[in-house]
Design a protein around this nucleic acid. Structure first.
Lengths: 214, 214
DNA sequence: GAAAGTATGTTGTAATTACAACATTTTGGG
DNA sequence: CCCAAAATGTTGTAATTACAACATACTTTC
């Protein structure tokens, strides 16, 4: 198991190596590998597992019965997912979680939280609170990216956010075209088309997933 | 101040009346009234206040420079808002908060959390965690309501959710037409038009904000 | 380095939505 | 009860998007 990534995670902030090792044991930490495209959770499942990405990345997505996919979030190395479902263990998942690329996930049983002593649990809960509040902001930002009614507006809203995050007008995005389309809730072909127009209009330059805002 | 609503809130679950009274003092609880349409927070503001609705309701919304409104959430009596910003006090708000109707809000200073004793703080943090995880699920559900590409799909996705929540095919929704349109991210006139068609098609019946799924 | 497979770009048409303008209904005072 | 204001419904047209079909480019594997 890749310990160093976990040690630097928000969850274990303020804990020393010994404590982390004990916690991993107490929470029944188990790592599992998935190939690109594999489904980690399906809509309707129940889980008490807090999940941590030690390698690769996963998409949180909703797939309707007509095969339309909506990507709500992309969770990369060093980040958590399913925290809401782990902490509210009677709520069935509303989403699917899929491996966006080959990846490794560590599962931590939140049911076992109850067995921890008060001090440790309090510190963990405080860190969990940070995780959930940040996740909230993440979910909100997707709403801003999909708020514009037109495709160009959505692309710009998204690219601007990434640009601000990376402190640069030039950056890579973590999505391929199909994923970006599913994230922005537009057709892939319409997205490709609009990106071409935006380049012709001198708004952006892009090649694969490298973008520059002009 | 309307104490009873606060006493039944998730935040104070497990606390007795004396403790709550002390906490309200320690967190500098202050109530303020707003008229319908008033702006409670504007995008870009910084706050450390956890906000609780004691009467009426507020909308969490994003307003772009062309006057387009997107409603992310409607927060009613007995619920909290701004918890993410209160707990991450350097993050400027991405949203506006407006009074959807005449309302009263209690503001609780999260900065003052640090002054509480460990036990009390731990219990509060655990309750805050419940608030943020539930808010996460709420934000997710809006994503499902706006996921369908077509207006009819969005309306049905939303109405189905409400129907399940209320355990009935007949129910009231908390939105007027303009709010529902801004929540589903569609034009008001298109929404009205589609609702008419859906009635003609025998899918639903509705009058004002009372709906029935057939 | 050729072939197969995957990802991305392009185009045309049908369907849908945006927007504006106006009609009708409902609501809240006076 | 009437009026004014607000909310909701209706309609037509221009603009945009969905969808399918295909072209091109890039990757991977043998």
């Amino acid at each position: 198991m890749d310990i160093s990534v976990l040690h630097n995670s928000i969850l274990f902030k303020g804990f020393d190596d010994t404590e982390i090792a004990e916690l991993l044991k107490a929470l029944n930490a188990a790592e599992k590998k998935y190939n690109k495209g594999a489904m980690i959770f399906s809509s309707g499942e129940i889980t008490d597992k807090l999940c941590f990405v030690t390698a690769g990345g996963v998409t949180i997505e909703s797939n309707d019965m007509w095969g339309n996919r909506t990507i709500l979030n992309l969770v990369g190395k060093g980040q958590f997912f399913a925290e809401s479902y782990a902490l509210l263990p009677d709520v069935p998942m509303l989403v699917d979680v899929c491996a966006a690329e080959d990846c490794s996930i560590v599962f931590l049983s939140m049911k076992s939280l109850a067995d921890l002593n008060d001090t440790i649990r309090a510190r963990l809960l405080a860190n969990l609170l940070t995780i959930t509040t940040r996740k909230n902001l993440h979910l909100s930002s997707r709403s801003f990216h999909t708020a514009p009614r037109q495709v160009r507006g959505r692309i710009m809203a998204y690219l601007n956010t990434v640009s601000v995050q990376k402190h640069s007008r030039e950056f890579d995005i973590p999505f391929d075209r199909q994923q970006l389309a599913d994230y922005l809730n537009v057709e892939r072909s319409v997205l490709s088309n609009e990106l071409s127009k935006m380049q012709r209009d001198g708004l952006i330059r892009c090649r694969k997933n490298h973008f520059e805002i002009i």
